[in-house]
Design a protein around this nucleic acid. Sequence first.
DNA 1: ATAATTGTTGAGACTGAGTCTCAACAAAGT
DNA 2: ACTTTGTTGAGACTCAGTCTCAACAATTAT
Lengths: 139, 139
Amino acid sequence: MDTNKLLSKYSIRSTKARQEIAKAIISLRHKHFCAEEVIERLRKKEIKVSRASAYRLVKLFSKRGVLRPVDLNKRWQMYETSFDKNHHDHLYCLNCGKIIEFENRAIENLQTKVCKEKKFKPLKHSLKILGLCRECDNA
Amino acid sequence: MDTNKLLSKYSIRSTKARQEIAKAIISLRHKHFCAEEVIERLRKKEIKVSRASAYRLVKLFSKRGVLRPVDLNKRWQMYETSFDKNHHDHLYCLNCGKIIEFENRAIENLQTKVCKEKKFKPLKHSLKILGLCRECDNA
DNA sequence: ATAATTGTTGAGACTGAGTCTCAACAAAGT
DNA sequence: ACTTTGTTGAGACTCAGTCTCAACAATTAT
C-alpha cells in the first residue's frame, strides 16, 4: 500500500510527516486503534512526528472517509480503516474485549423502514451489541 | 415521585445530598442529560451539593439501572431515566440535535439471530441512526 | 443509649485524551 | 525567485470526569 497514492487520492498534500503517519496507520489496518496507538507505533520505530500532526492526520482521514470512527471505547476515539472493508456492525465482548464484525442486510433494511416512518433521512448508523463471546461465556 | 423510595428501592443509603441530587435527576427525566446538567440544575436552585457527589450518584444510578447511559454525545456521558421508559433506540439529527426514539421488535429479533450464529451472548445493545430530521432535511 | 463500624461528603487537586497556539518551515502557484 | 498557502512541532491548555482525605453521618453491635 503506497502512502503517497493514498494521500494524493484524497487530495492531501504529501509531506514527510504525513507519509510516516500514514504508514503507521496502514500497519494497524487489521485492528481497531486510536490516535495514541498510531503515535506509539511511530515512537517504537523511533520516527519523530509530533502528537499534534498524528492527531491532525487521523482526524483528516476520518473526515475524508479513509478512517471510520468507531465507538468501542469511551475513553479513546477508536478508528478502523475503510479500505478493504465494507460497512459492518460490531459485537463487543465485555469480558475480553474481543470484537466480532458482522453484516446483516435485513437489519439495515428494517432501519431504512423505521426512518421512512419517522420521516428521517439516515446518513449513517452504528449498531453495537455488548455481551459475552463464546469463550468468555463458557468460562 | 418520592426520592426516598427511589433510593431505598435500590438499597442506596438516603442522605440529604442524595435526596437533592435524585430530585434534580427526576426533574430531568424527560430529557437526555449529563452529570453537569444535574449539577447545573442544583446550582440554579441554590442547593449546595458537591460536584463529586452528583457524579457519584449518577454513576451509582447507572450501575443500579435507574439511569441508562446513552452515547449521544462524545464529549459528555449522557443518560436517560429508565423508569417509565422501555428499551428503545435513537435517531439523532446531526443538524439540530433532535432525538427521536423508536422501538422495533423485528430488528431486535434479527440481532438475536445474528448473535446465535456468532455464538455470542448478547447483554445489551445500542443502535443509533444519524441523519437529518424532517425539518432539517427540508430546510 | 453508647460505642464501634461502615459509608458519605465536599473542596479542590489531579488526570489524560484531545485541541490550540504560533513562529518556523515547506509546498504550490505565479 | 517570490508570494501565497498549508503544515509542522513543542508544549501550553481545556475540561469532563476521578481521586484524595479528613470531617461527618448513618447503621450495627454492645
